[in-house]
Design a protein around this nucleic acid. Structure first.
Lengths: 208, 208
DNA sequence: GTCTATACCGCGATAGAC
DNA sequence: GTCTATCGCGGTATAGAC
């Protein structure tokens, strides 16, 4: 019962569009991306694309929604692990690097959205992430009270950590020129990840 | 000998355009900014603007050039100061925070350029900054050899520091929502600056 | 579901009057 | 140095055939 053209991959046109849109928006931003770019990348015409999503803004919103849910999922898994003290912090940092190494486009599109102040987005990004920040801040406070970590302002610490992890990926094209290598090569990502982990560990824990 | 409308400020139309263009490009990016937006902000028409700069790209280039030269100038002053060991690092970090607190738009436009991989720029941004990175890396290596600082990879350290300083300003609209305050208020900037300084100090130096 | 054709708008840039 | 007027292009979005 073989058909003439069997569907080799279960990827729907819709999913193909979402993948290509993520790539384009991350690469050139919302304003810098035309629906023609995306349609051409998928191999269809622009009107066909608009049949699936209705408008550029709606497509962008769906791209971002998929991104956010995957990020949260990873974060939840990392936080739920049985680990305490520094081991837990390291686990969350490395989990972030792992996700972004797989999907550097997530970081670039996130950063663009932060720069634009959420102009193209229906949802309030900060409001979504805030519960995570609050929970993490409480946890850090408790650890510092218990003498596990040196005392730092937890929220400021989290902002700095967020910047340290994201910057390497968002500014990769720029860092390429600084280190004269492709920043996104797995080895280079791993090296920077180790460096960030070591830095925060030195800052937070007393001995070794 | 008073004229009817004396020139109160020595700002030329050209400078007014550069200021407004910086604001717009930082706020909405290169693609997101139209020459109409800039002209309207100055109070002239688009053709008048093009009389001064010739093209959008040329205007953007001039905006960036002014930004770069001011940044380098500050950096040179900070580096030239008589200070050693940790005091020198702290001086450079605080000098960066001072400049960016005055001109947060510099950070936003820099970050956009890094994200875009220098697409709109004639000059190679990384090539310009690289001598600074190399010099700083050599200095850190020497200090670590002398036992002044704990050992870290100097280049990775610089990238992380770069990210820590810039992120607070570039993602300010997003951080606003996280801390429920305006991130760019002088007090909040100072607080984060102190936090970053304390973090790197704890990571780099042994005792206090 | 995908196509062709088209409406409509805003963009960057130019020409030429004042 | 600034204006009005206009060109040509590419953008999003819609209508309707297949």
């Amino acid at each position: 019962m073989a058909t003439g053209i069997p569907p080799k991959l279960p990827l729907s046109t819709r999913d193909l569009i979402l993948d290509e849109a993520l790539r384009c928006f991350a690469e050139r931003g919302y304003e810098g991306t035309s629906l023609n770019d995306i349609a051409a990348g998928v191999g269809i015409r622009r009107p066909s694309l608009l049949h699936h999503f209705g408008s550029k803004e709606a497509l962008y919103g769906d791209v971002f929604e998929r991104l956010l849910s995957e990020w949260m999922e990873r974060l939840d898994v990392a936080v739920a692990q049985q680990a305490s003290g520094w081991a837990k912090v390291e686990l969350v940092i490395r989990s972030g690097f792992d996700l972004f190494a797989e999907r550097p486009d997530y970081v670039r599109i996130m950063r663009r959205e932060a720069l634009d102040g959420g102009a193209h987005l229906g949802v309030d990004l900060a409001a979504v992430l805030r519960p995570y920040v609050e929970e993490a801040a409480r946890w850090f406070s408790a650890q510092m009270d218990a003498g596990v970590f040196r005392r730092h302002d937890p929220r400021q610490l989290l902002i700095t950590g967020y910047g340290a992890v994201l910057t390497y990926f968002s500014d990769a094209p720029f860092i390429d020129g600084l280190i004269d290598q492709s920043a996104l090569l797995p080895d280079n990502i791993a090296e920077h990840c180790d460096s960030v982990v070591a830095l925060f560990r030195a800052a937070l824990t007393e001995g070794d």
